[in-house]
C-alpha cells in the first residue's frame, strides 16, 4: 500500500551557461581555423612584431600615418555639407579640365614680352579656357545649394 506523498522537483538547468557557451565558442573557433591562426599568431608573435615594427618605422609608413592623421584631424573639423560641396566641386573641376585637348605646338615659355603678347593671343586664351572653365565650375559648385550626396549620386531625391 502506497500513501499519497508529494515531492518538490529540483529545477533543471535550462539553456547554456557561460561554460557551455565557452565550449561552443572553442568548438567554432577550431572548426573555422581561427584557433590555428590564433595559435600561429601567438607562437610567432616576436617575429611578427619585429616585421610590423620594422615596417612601421620606415619613412614612408611614418609619413603616411602622419598625413592620414592630419587628414582625419582636418576632416573632423569640416561640416559634411561643406566637405560635400568641396568634393563635388573638385569632381566637377576635374571633369571640366579633363574635357580639354591641348594643341601639340604650344609648349614654349612666353617671357615678359611674350606674356604681353599672350594677353592678346586668342589662341592662348583658347588654350587657357579649360582651366578657367574648371575654376569657374569649382567656384560655382561651392556656391550651389546641394542635395544629399546619395541623391546627387543616384539622381533620386529624398526627404528621408
Amino acid at each position: 500500500m502506497a500513501a499519497r506523498i508529494g515531492y518538490d522537483v529540483k529545477p533543471t538547468k535550462i539553456g547554456p551557461d557561460a561554460r557551455d557557451e565557452l565550449q561552443q565558442l572553442l568548438e567554432n573557433l577550431h572548426k573555422h581555423g581561427m584557433l590555428r591562426l590564433a595559435n600561429d599568431l601567438v607562437c610567432a608573435n616576436s617575429r611578427i612584431a619585429k616585421v610590423a615594427v620594422d615596417g612601421l618605422n620606415k619613412e614612408g609608413t611614418l609619413n603616411a600615418l602622419q598625413n592620414l592623421s592630419l587628414l582625419l584631424m582636418a576632416l573632423s573639423s569640416i561640416p559634411p555639407e561643406r566637405f560635400q560641396k568641396l568634393v563635388f566641386a573638385v569632381t566637377d573641376a576635374l571633369d571640366s579640365a579633363g574635357r580639354h585637348r591641348p594643341e601639340p605646338d604650344q609648349d614654349e615659355a612666353p617671357g615678359l614680352s611674350g606674356a604681353y603678347r599672350m594677353l592678346n593671343d586668342e589662341d592662348l586664351w583658347r588654350s587657357l579656357h579649360p582651366l578657367i572653365a574648371g575654376l569657374k565650375a569649382f567656384s560655382q559648385h561651392l556656391d550651389r545649394d546641394e542635395e544629399k550626396p546619395i541623391s546627387v549620386f543616384t539622381g533620386k531625391s529624398s526627404a528621408a
Binding site: 502506497a2 499519497r4 508529494g6
Partner: peptide, 25 residues
C-alpha cells in the same frame, strides 16, 4: 485515490510530478 493507495506497485511515467505520481512507487 483510495484504489491507488491499495496497489502493491505503481509506476508513473510523466513530464511532471503529477497528482497521479503522488501515489507511485
Amino acid at each position: 485515490h483510495e484504489a491507488f493507495t491499495k496497489l502493491d506497485f505503481m509506476v508513473v511515467q510523466d513530464m511532471f510530478f503529477s497528482r497521479t505520481a503522488e501515489f507511485a512507487d
